[in-house]
Design a binder for these strands. Structure first.
Length: 630
RNA sequence: GGCGGUGUAGCUCAGCUGGUUAGAGCAUACGGCUCAUAUCCGUAGUGUCCGGGGUUCAAGUCCCUGCACCGCCA
C-alpha cells in the first residue's frame, strides 16, 4: 500500500513582505516534504497567501491600488521567493483563487444548512477610526486607545458559528489523541484555553464595512471574515471535496504553524471541520519564534532579518542548516549573524566540508580518482559501517517527532566518526607502503561510502550540497533512503571529482551598519527598577542668586510641590535673575550635600551645549509643578 | 488582573515518565597528526541545575512559595 504525506504551511497574509519567520516555517515544511518523498511517500506540500480582509483593503488604498492588484503584487513576492530557497511546494494557493472561493462558499452553505451558523446581534463600542469594535475593558478611560476618541455604541448584526457546541467533543478528541497538537506544551495550552467556555465565533462582516472578502452564499449583504476563508485553504489545496487525492491526503494532513496562530488552528479549525462533517487533520505542529539578537523581531527597530539577505551572503544550504540545527522545534531560538557564522565554520567548514575535501583528495591521490574495490574488512571498518547503517533509522526517529536538531546532531556524530576513522587508519601512511595497497583501498572505500550515506541523508536539509557531493562521488539521479539501508552502495570504479571547497570558512566582522553611528561610552546597563529609584520632578524656579565668592554656583529656590533650596553650577551660562519663573527638571531624592557652605536639596538636570557650557533641561508647554519626569 | 512558559558549565542549549560521580556543541588550555578549508584526533576541566520550603530511601526532574524574564488573553 502506498504511503501518503501532506504538509502545509500557513497561508501568509499579504499585508507585509516575507521575513525569517515565514522562511523558517516554509523551509521546515520543505525539509519534511523532501524527507518523506525520499522515504517513498506520495507527498503533497501546500503553501500560499491569505488575501482578504481589512488590512489588505487598507494597504491597497494607501498604495493607491485595487485590493486585487495589491494582493497580486505581494502574493508574487512570496511565490517568487520560495524557489530561491529551494522550496518544493506542489501547489501555491491564493484565497482569491476562484476554486477557493467556491470551496469556501460550499462549506459555509453546508454548515449553514446543518444549523451551525446563525444570525445574531453584536453590540459594543465601535471606533470609526479603527473600523472595529472594542470591548469595554480595552478602552482607556472610555476612549479608543489608538485615536483617543470616544467610540460610538453600536449594534451590528452578523453571522456566528456555533463553536461552543463542539467544545466537549474537541476536548475529548485532544485527550484521546495525545499528539494531535504537538509538541506537548501547545497541546496543554490548547487544553488550558478549553477549560473556559468557548464563545461562538463571529464569521462575517457587513459589506457596508468590508467588501474585500468572499460573499456569504446565504446572504449577499455580508462577506465571510477570516476563519471560514483562510483555514479552508488546506482543503481547497488538495481538491476538496471531489479531488482524486483528497481522500488519501486529508487523513495524513500535517499543519505547520508558529505559536501565534495556535488558537485558530487548534481550536477553531477542528470545530469547523467537525461542523462541516470532515474528519480532523492528523497533526498540528507548532513551532516557536526566532528572536533576533535576543530581542523580539521588530520592524521599527529594523531587526527583521530578511532571509534572502543571508542566503545571498552565506549560501542557502548554510542558512537552511542553521535554521533546522539551531532551533529546537517548538521552542523559541535566537538568531544572530554571529551564531550563523559559528555554525558555518564549525559544522559545515571544519567538520563536513573539510571531511569531503580530505577524503576526495586522498582518493584522487592514492586511488587514481576512482572508487577503489574494497578488500577484507577489519573491526574498525565494520564499526563505521554499522554506524552508517544505523544512521537512517536514528535520523528518521528524531525526524518523526519533529526533533530536527537531533536528526542533524546524529548526522554530525557520524561525520565525526568518519573523521576519527581517518585519523586512526592513517591512509597517508598506508600509501607509503606498497604492501598495504589493498588495505588502503578498503580504507578509502569505507571513507567514501560513509560520505555517500552522509550526502543522501542530508539531501532534504541541504539539497544543493548533497547533489554536488553525490556528483563528486560519481552518483547521479534522485537519491532515496532505500539506498542507505545497507552498507556498500557505492559502486567501485565510479569516477570521482574534486572541486572547490563546498563550505569555505567565513570571517565574521561585527560590522556597524553603514551610516549608523553608535555610542561608545554607554554606562553600565540598569534595569527599569533601578531607573525608577531616581525621583525626577518638574520644578519652578522661585528665586535665584549667585553664591558669594563662587564662580559659577547659583543658589536656587524652587517649587517642586514643596519649596526647596538647590545649588547648581550654571552661573557661567545663566544669569540668576533670568532663571526665575523657568520650569526645570530636578532630582529630588539625591542625598543632600553642602556646596560652598550652602545645603543643596536636589540637583537640576542640564546638558552640555555645542561649543561648551550648559543648557537647562526644560519643558514644552506648562509642565505641572511637582510632576514626575520619566 | 487571568492563563501559560522560561530560569542548568564562559556562550547557545539538551536532559522523556524522579534513580549510578548532571550532559552536548561552541569557546578556552595542553598534547598528537599532516590527507585536508590553519582543518582533524585526543586530553582537561569548571556548574549553590534562579532563591526558600516540602514529599521521597532518592529531585535539575514532583508539590508549595518567592524572584526575574518572556508570551497569550482580558
Amino acid at each position: 500500500m502506498k504511503k501518503h504525506f501532506y504538509v502545509t504551511t500557513p497561508i501568509y497574509y499579504v499585508n507585509a513582505s516575507p521575513h525569517i519567520g515565514h522562511a523558517y516555517t516554509t523551509i521546515v515544511a520543505d525539509v519534511m516534504a523532501r524527507f518523506y518523498r525520499m522515504a517513498g511517500y506520495d507527498t503533497f506540500f501546500l503553501t500560499g497567501t491569505d488575501e482578504h480582509g481589512d488590512k489588505v483593503a487598507e494597504a491597497a488604498v494607501s498604495a493607491n491600488e485595487t485590493p486585487k492588484a495589491y494582493a497580486d503584487r505581494i502574493s508574487a513576492q512570496f511565490r517568487d521567493l520560495w524557489p530561491k530557497l529551494n522550496i518544493t511546494n506542489d501547489y501555491f494557493i491564493r484565497t482569491t483563487d476562484e476554486n477557493h472561493v467556491r470551496t469556501v462558499r460550499s462549506i459555509l452553505q453546508k454548515v449553514y444548512d446543518a444549523g451551525d451558523i446563525y444570525f445574531g446581534e453584536y453590540e459594543g463600542f465601535y471606533c470609526v477610526g479603527c473600523e472595529r469594535f472594542y470591548r469595554e475593558s480595552e478602552l482607556v478611560e472610555g476612549r479608543c486607545p489608538d485615536h483617543q476618541t470616544t467610540p460610538e455604541h453600536r449594534k451590528e448584526s452578523n453571522y456566528f458559528f456555533t463553536m461552543s457546541r463542539y467544545q466537549d467533543w474537541l476536548v475529548r478528541y485532544i485527550l484521546d489523541n495525545p499528539d494531535f497538537i504537538r509538541p506537548e506544551r501547545y497541546r496543554n495550552e490548547a487544553l488550558a484555553f478549553l477549560r473556559e467556555p468557548l464563545e461562538d465565533l463571529c464569521i462575517s462582516r457587513p459589506k457596508t464595512r468590508l467588501t474585500w472578502g468572499i460573499t456569504l452564499p446565504f446572504d449577499e449583504k455580508y462577506v465571510t471574515y477570516v476563519w471560514f476563508d483562510a483555514l479552508i485553504n488546506y482543503l481547497t489545496g488538495i481538491g476538496y471535496p471531489g479531488g482524486a487525492d483528497f481522500g488519501t491526503l486529508w487523513p495524513v494532513a500535517e499543519h505547520l504553524i508558529a505559536k501565534d496562530i495556535l488558537k485558530p488552528h487548534g481550536i477553531y479549525w477542528p470545530t469547523m471541520l467537525k461542523a462541516a462533517g470532515i474528519e480532523p487533520y492528523r497533526h498540528l505542529n507548532v513551532h516557536g519564534y526566532w528572536n533576533i539578537d535576543h530581542s523580539k523581531m521588530s520592524k521599527s527597530r529594523g531587526t527583521v532579518v530578511k532571509p534572502l539577505d543571508l542566503k545571498d551572503k552565506y549560501g542557502l544550504d548554510a542558512f537552511r542548516h542553521f535554521l533546522l540545527r539551531e532551533m529546537v522545534f517548538g521552542l523559541d531560538s535566537n538568531f544572530s549573524e554571529e551564531a550563523l557564522v559559528q555554525r558555518i565554520n564549525s559544522d559545515l567548514a571544519n567538520d563536513l566540508g573539510n571531511l569531503v575535501s580530505r577524503s576526495l583528495s586522498m582518493a584522487v591521490k592514492y586511488c587514481g580518482g576512482t572508487v577503489p574495490v574494497p578488500g577484507d574488512v577489519t573491526d574498525a571498518d565494520r564499526e563505521l559501517a554499522s554506524k552508517g547503517e544505523a544512521l537512517y533509522p536514528e535520523v528518521e526517529a528524531s525526524f518523526r517527532s519533529l526533533m530536527f536538531h537531533r536528526s542533524l546532531a546524529a548526522v554530525w556524530e557520524f561525520i565525526s566518526h568518519n573523521n576519527k576513522y581517518i585519523v586512526e587508519q592513517e591512509p597517508w601512511l598506508l600509501a607509503k607502503d606498497p604492501a598495504q595497497r589493498k588495505r588502503l583501498d578498503t580504507v578509502i572505500y569505507t571513507i567514501l561510502e560513509s560520505l555517500r550515506i552522509t550526502g543522501i541523508i542530508l539531501s532534504p536539509f541541504m539539497p544543493d550540497f548533497s547533489r554536488e557531493l553525490l556528483r563528486r562521488l560519481g552518483i547521479s539521479g534522485d537519491p532515496s533512503f532505500d539506498d542507505i539501508q545497507k552498507w556498500g552502495g557505492l559502486t567501485p570504479g565510479n569516477h570521482l571529482a574534486q572541486g572547490e571547497a563546498l563550505f569555505p570558512r567565513v570571517v565574521f566582522e561585527k560590522e556597524d551598519e553603514p551610516g549608523v553611528r553608535k555610542l561608545t561610552d554607554v554606562k553600565q546597563e540598569v534595569t527599569f527598577e533601578e531607573f525608577e529609584k531616581l525621583d525626577i520632578r518638574v520644578a519652578k524656579v522661585l528665586e535665584a542668586e549667585a553664591v558669594p565668592k563662587s564662580k559659577k554656583l547659583i543658589k536656587i529656590k524652587i517649587d517642586v510641590g514643596e519649596e526647596r533650596i538647590i545649588v547648581a553650577g550654571i552661573g557661567q551660562d545663566y544669569a540668576a535673575h533670568d532663571l526665575v519663573g523657568k520650569r526645570i527638571a530636578v532630582i529630588v531624592n539625591l542625598k543632600p550635600t553642602k556646596i560652598m557652605g550652602v545645603a543643596s536639596h536636589g540637583m537640576l538636570l542640564a546638558a552640555e551645549k555645542e561649543g561648551g557650557g550648559y543648557t537647562l533641561i526644560s519643558f514644552d508647554g506648562d509642565a505641572k509643578v511637582g510632576a514626575r519626569v520619566r
